[in-house]
Amino acid sequence: MKLKVNGKSRSFAGAPFKRLIEVLREDFGLTGTKEGCGEGECGACTVLVDGEPVNSCLIPVCSVEGRRIETVESLGNPGKLSPLQEAFMERGGAQCGICTPGMLMTATAWIKGGGSAAPGAIRECLAGNLCRCTGYQHIVDSVARAVKGKGGGKRR
């Protein structure tokens, strides 16, 4: 079965009911996507399917055959962070980091979809991504900064 993962065509020949998260992590080596609950509650496993955020822990891979999958690995790398990642660096959006890949993917869809920088709207958009470290405020700040087109910049 074929999938388009982070712009590359990939094929998978294992059990069709294997979950997308495990195919990404075990078969494709993309361990950036995390599993926090297996219930579709925490959103740590959020990836984009055809541009929309979904919980990859609740998806058998057969049900997304041929679809376009994007994971955190599609964003940037430590040497060249994406503007959203830069904003997270600048505004303290990541602490322990385990919810971060999922947060980034939900925020990526938000920004691509023309989402606003209003804190209330960002909070609503991120409601499916639990974070236990930050109390969300610095994440909301980070996303707002990215929406406004600012990534990194001068240190305070």
Binding site: G32, L75, P78
Partner: peptide
Amino acid sequence: RRKEGPEKLCGL
């Protein structure tokens, strides 16, 4: 900026 931030933000 957080020392290990880039690795965390890139899923590495």
